[in-house]
């Protein structure tokens, strides 16, 4: 089963990369952008077949490794 995870920076954390991407977009003529925040995306192919169990395991992975909860939030996307 494939589960996806999106990690984003928390609202108050400065994202200099996002800022530079925003400036570049602006320079390219995409001048109606309010803000860009850069994040991470993971696809985890797990041997687990039970939906809830798989999600619980992935949540544990997020808390223990994939995200640093001081600065990041994680969102687990329901497997299809």
């Amino acid at each position: 089963m494939k589960i996806s995870v999106i990690i984003t920076l928390k609202k108050d954390v400065l994202d200099p990369q996002g800022k530079v991407i925003h400036q570049t977009l602006d320079g390219m003529g995409f001048d109606n952008v309010n803000e860009v925040r850069q994040g991470k995306y993971f696809e985890i192919d797990t041997k687990e077949t039970d939906n809830d169990k798989a999600k619980a395991k992935v949540e544990e992975m997020c808390k223990k490794l994939l995200a640093n909860l001081v600065i990041e939030n994680y969102k687990i996307i329901d497997p299809k």
Binding site: V13, L14, P16, Q17, V20, N68, V70, I71
Partner: peptide, 16 residues
């Protein structure tokens, strides 16, 4: 900081 032995995190330098 990743072990949690000391508080906080180290982000990308402000001016990249």
């Amino acid at each position: 900081v990743e072990t949690g032995l000391v508080p906080g995190v180290l982000l990308r330098n402000k001016y990249l």
